[in-house]
């Protein structure tokens, strides 16, 4: 049994097992810290920067840093919430996100965060980048217009040898997450469904299974994201 530690988030007492990340510890204690790239069971990488918090007046990512005894974490502040809202806006303008026509609408974490942070008109101009769609796999569609490069599929969708179905390509502003051509052709239905489920947005769509649950009855249609954590 590992030891229990105590620290504070926005003045509120957090009790958690030693070694738990701040995001995990917060969750157990009913405090919601927004995340996009973080995924339970996968090694955190701090890609989306949504869970940015401040410790000792320095920015850190709550998904990668374990809580430490006596730590004082600042999370729900005006400054940090504005940065988080800014990141959501940035992801919207640098992709092509048309919620009304997206199969993931209502289950999409990006959309849900935009609601949560009450995004109206993004502060950044729309970029309208030219992006492609890879439909070569018989099981899934990989739509680059919607990809937020969170790495969740890269980290969780693997074959029995541990090889990745998804990987990065290029770098910087040209970065993309692509499906391995050969492995994509031999993907199982289970894995395809899982890939879609693990994708926070609508970039991975399991083919021939559209709109089983109608928009309006989906996860975030009634209640905001984070609601399941906050009492």
């Amino acid at each position: 049994m590992s030891e229990t530690i105590e620290f504070k988030i926005d003045g509120r007492k957090i009790v958690a097992e030693e070694g738990k990340t701040i995001v995990e510890a917060a969750k157990i204690n009913g405090v919601y810290i927004p995340t996009l790239c973080n995924f339970e069971g996968a090694k955190p990488k701090g890609c989306c920067r949504m869970c940015t918090i401040k410790v000792n007046n320095r920015f850190m990512t709550a998904c990668t840093i374990p809580g430490a005894a006596g730590m004082e974490v600042e999370s729900n502040s005006e400054e940090l919430n504005d940065i988080r809202k800014g990141i959501v806006e940035l992801l919207f303008v640098t992709g092509n996100h048309f919620c009304p026509s997206c199969e993931k609408s209502g289950n999409c974490e990006l959309q849900a965060l935009a609601y949560r942070y009450q995004m109206m008109v993004p502060r950044f101009p729309y970029v309208f980048p030219q992006k492609g769609i890879d439909a070569s796999s018989p099981k899934i569609i990989k739509d680059q217009n919607r990809c937020i490069l969170c790495q969740r599929c890269m980290k969780t969708i693997k074959d029995e040898k541990g090889r990745n179905y998804f990987a990065y390509q290029n770098r910087g502003s040209k970065l993309a997450v692509v499906l391995d051509e050969k492995m994509g052709k031999e993907m199982s239905d289970e894995l395809a469904a899982l890939a879609m489920e693990n994708c926070p947005v609508g970039s991975i769509i399991y083919k021939e299974n559209g709109f089983k649950k109608p928009i309006g009855k989906r996860k975030y249609d009634k209640r905001p994201i984070g609601n399941e954590i906050e009492a």
């Binding site: 990488k45 992801l91 640098t94 790495q151 910087g172």
Partner: peptide
Amino acid sequence: FIEESCGSCSTCRNLPSVMKQK
């Protein structure tokens, strides 16, 4: 910076080009 960013952070991947445009 736009060329040399590794691209994994949402901010560093996108903001420099948005700022350059501005």
